[in-house]
Design a protein around this nucleic acid. Sequence first.
RNA 1: GUGGGCGUAGCUCAGCCUGGUUAGAGCGUCAGGUUGUGGCCCUGAAGGCCGGGGGUUCAAGUCCCCUCGCUCACCCCA
Length: 419
Amino acid sequence: MPEFQTTPGTRDILPPDAARWRRFVDVFAGVVESAGYEQIILPMFEDLGVFQRLGDATDVVTKEMYDFVDKGGRHVALRPEQTAGVCRAFVQHHPNLPWKVWYSGPNFRYEKAQQGRYRQFDQVGVEVLGVDDPLLDVEVIALAHGFYRALGLRNVELHVNSLGDTGDRARYVAALESYFRAHEIDLTKESRATLERNPLRVLDSKRAEDRDVISQAPSISEFFSPEAASHFAAVQDGLSLLGIDFVVNDRLVRGLDYYRSTTFEFVSTALDAAQTAVGGGGRYDGLVEDLGGPSTPGIGFAIGLDRTLLACDAESVFGIDSSGTDVFVVDATGGRSALLLTAELRNAGLRADRAFGAKSMKSQMKSANKSRATVAVIIGEDELARGVATVRPMDGGEQSECPLGQVVATVTDIVKKAK
RNA sequence: GUGGGCGUAGCUCAGCCUGGUUAGAGCGUCAGGUUGUGGCCCUGAAGGCCGGGGGUUCAAGUCCCCUCGCUCACCCCA
């Protein structure tokens, strides 16, 4: 056991997995940039106050924030998500409306790790500030949906709900609380504890003993104002227009206090774990105002890399990319020829690798094979003396000789044909 | 923070119940299999304070306690 290891809840993403992570973000960027979203890069830690707006009644702020006091006495927190940071940046910089941004990168929470949940976890996501059109909700949901499809995932369900406007939500929470209080005796003690903190979250209980009480609980839809009802109807209509399947799940309540109106979640039915949500989001009209800005509607979603990649594994899609190098230079004459040739090949745009340490030709050929090179270029004493190189296709084709000056052209030709 | 399971070679694991000669396998790595050439095959080598500490015993990878870590679940979910 080495003296130092990754600290709990963190881990190294080694090759070749790291390349897969990068492709994941590349695919996401391609999807959202085609819809006019621009990248934003936020600090990884901010004043704790920025994140305290997430909700007082949740454990999120009280025990799961990765916070500390820095040497200047500032109470800061590693960002637990990026929505609050985006809103803070919006208030700080006054961008033109609508502000459509996307982001990727690590977030942090202080809690015990389990499958698909780490203390440092990566997300990609988008936020749009300044538009309350329900058709924007549809666009945002459609982008997430399109991204899952771009990855190749098929077993992802879209759940949508609305929490109504601020007044609706407050009246619903009150009604829910009195309902659960009346049936407290039938709830598990865990759910009774949740009831004390946040009645909405009781709806999220997966415990079988709670199921009956929850199924009889009032639905948020009974509390919709006419405006909230028509907004939600327009969202559903838009999704149908795009041919995106969804289920209305009136038990879907997101945990944070700032959510209003449209909420949605993507659930992988391919995952066999306690955590099956691979992404989610919703409207948070009011968050910008909470952070000291003008009243501004907002909506966004975040998608977790770890869990989404687990879903990809479960569906055997978006696998590790096993593309190797184009050409491997074998030099049995000391290595100076390889130094020169790999430089020339790389300058010509080819992926070229070589061995170091003056190994035997056999050993270097093994390395060439492992590099999955399309072609090997071999320089032995004989070639060096005659000013030529042996070019050997690694798929078993006939090898040939060519003058050193034509190696790049010859290799380029073979690599092109192989593709 | 709470509970269950698990820590033996780089990786996946056997051995532990029923303590006893130099702790094993597969894969991977490295080197060979004559005269300059990969994959398949064959041979060989390197690589382990058996997570750490304490205890029981003539003797501990094996039994007991503690601790650290991983993992699954609970809580919570950004």
